[in-house]
Write a protein that binds this DNA or RNA. Structure first.
Lengths: 338, 338
DNA sequence: TTGTACGCGTTATCAC
DNA sequence: GTGATAACGCGTACAA
């Protein structure tokens, strides 16, 4: 009998040592139901003894599919990306899947081709696409073309359930603004996200919904558009705070912009929340660490990512996973009663 | 001639269509130098025509190594992890390598075994280990045992060059504290990181160096230990600000703790930087967004991660990459002259 | 400079 | 239930 000189034991070693064919070993590994219990135990003993671990490359070759799932994102914010990674990992832990990440540049003219080359080269099992780039239908098309399954996350239901995990941003924002109304605010400013972003549109709709429910007429003078950056929030804050009468509260479509509004308020000598209440969206690390700590809306990111990963790797189990998630309002210290 | 029914073209298809053996195609792919130019062009034309992409699983099997590099981390902070991912990606872009991520829990008793199982199962080409978990020598040992190459990032040179990319935290902190001295501060408090962390020790040494250079005697009363969290920084700030005379400046060993110190100061009615100057370390997102924006020290994370990845995949090229990086002091608004 | 034959470690087919 | 044997797609001796 030939002795393996180097490295790891293979299925052949296990077969030889346990006196069965390698197909039988394969059956043990893959938990085939038609298998003599005694044989199984014998083989399992040898596997444990040898410390045998199946080679995923060989498996991938034979099965014509690998066990890598990809995460494609355009760095919406670090906290979110990491949360998603944790969520995916919680779904694939204890499985043979691994997570490969691929940041892309939304503005690059070669973005589409980059992704295509990546998918073509790595032959991933499937990919999960994060917002904001998930709003780009091109990517889904590329995936379909290449035969890699995909699931995208987003701020509204864009696709059929098996392809989509969504948060209901519209409803979440409506609740947040209603919360301000409940605290007595009537003149509530709004800082929108950039045009072209679905999340921005959804959040704006939620704002409108809440005002309508409270029978408050929207005033364009206290609405401004930002691009999800701190600086744009700062500029929007300056604009809104210059209006008369001044808003008693401002909802910003993300935390960065809310922080910008906060700075603008401080520069004008206003106290938060005494003179101005502020609510943000996302619950990034910033929200908890600025002063005062920001009341904000939090996506259940990990749970969403987990659900998305399960959809990808286990469609049967995915039936029990929700596709639409509602965000929570995180109450901190940036809101006062009027 | 058999026609491939499904899916992607293989090396055999290319060989058949270009009228050469598959070995020749293989030579073209791997840029073998001994190859007739005409043959090469002919084959390349067919490759382009077919849109042929080599199957990485088959390659991995034949070569007995795959093209995945792993990132093992314990989520030091989201910004850093993402920066590292970007850095690695910039090194592997245009190569056949892909990045697989693996967050681990430093406190889990099974951490070591988790990592081992991961490495054993995925048979990675190599791994890159981030602080703080990179300070754990066990992981390097596991890698050696399993024959996966590794490089770790850290706050001081712990290993031979081929295994290490380090920032010189000691020197960086010394510079930051010297900067405070240069602004006229003599009574400078220090918030240390948790015991057992190499980075904490290095930063403490840097603080000591700077004081010694300025002939200032260290005063234990204005030194406290935190555990790199906001809350611990807050507690440390309360302690230091209760001393008499009160420090005119505080250096905190990371930004989270610096933010905590800032809150503590504010609660005592102190203005920053008028009454107290603060310097942090890391330049996380928080640093730029708190009020006032925090002067802090920034690791060149992306460059470091890029160098680490190059060490992993291309030892020859790695000779031209630095192994020791010096951090920059980012001046913002949290420091005043005394 | 190019081709033949075989191995890499696994799964699938189809007999027994 | 189990086992030969042939894929899977590529790289490497070794020969030509």
């Amino acid at each position: 009998m030939k002795i393996k000189r180097d490295g790891k034991p293979t299925i052949n070693d296990v077969a030889r040592l346990s006196g069965v064919s390698k197909k039988t070993v394969s059956r043990v590994i893959n938990r085939s139901p038609l298998l003599n219990e005694a044989t199984r135990e014998k083989v399992e003993a040898v596997i444990a003894d040898l410390g045998y671990v199946p080679n995923p490359q060989a498996r991938a070759l034979a099965l014509r599919r690998n066990f890598l799932i990809g995460l494609i994102h355009d760095n919406p914010n670090a906290q979110m990306v990491l949360g998603v990674q944790e969520g995916i990992l919680s779904a694939i832990r204890e499985t043979e899947f691994a997570l490969v990440v691929r940041p892309v540049n939304r503005r690059s003219p070669t973005m589409r081709e980059d992704v295509r080359a990546f998918l073509e080269q790595q032959r991933l099992y499937g990919v999960l696409i994060l917002p904001p780039i998930s709003e780009n239908d091109d990517l889904a098309a590329v995936c379909d073309e290449l035969g890699v399954s995909w699931v995208r996350m987003g701020s509204a239901q864009l696709d059929a359930e098996e392809h989509m995990v969504a948060s209901n941003d519209r409803e979440a924002v409506a609740k947040a603004v209603a919360y301000l109304v409940g605290r007595g605010h009537r003149r509530i400013g709004f800082v929108a996200g950039p045009e072209g972003f679905r999340s921005a549109a959804e959040r704006a709709l939620g704002y409108g919904d809440a005002l309508a429910s409270a029978a408050i007429t929207a005033d364009p003078a206290i609405m401004a558009e930002g691009n999800y950056t701190f600086e744009s929030g700062h500029a929007a804050g300056e604009k809104l705070l210059a209006t008369t009468p001044r808003p008693s509260a401002i909802f910003a479509s993300n935390d960065e912009m809310a922080a910008g509004v906060l700075h603008a308020a401080r520069e004008q000598g206003l106290s938060v929340p005494e003179d101005l209440s502020i609510v943000g969206f996302d619950d990034t690390a910033i929200a908890a660490h600025i002063w005062p700590p920001l009341t904000t809306v939090r996506w259940p990111i990990q749970a969403m990512a987990r659900a998305a990963a399960i959809k990808l790797i286990d469609p049967a189990k995915a039936r029990h996973e929700p596709s639409l998630f509602l965000s929570d309002l995180i109450e901190r210290a940036s809101v006062n009663d009027v």
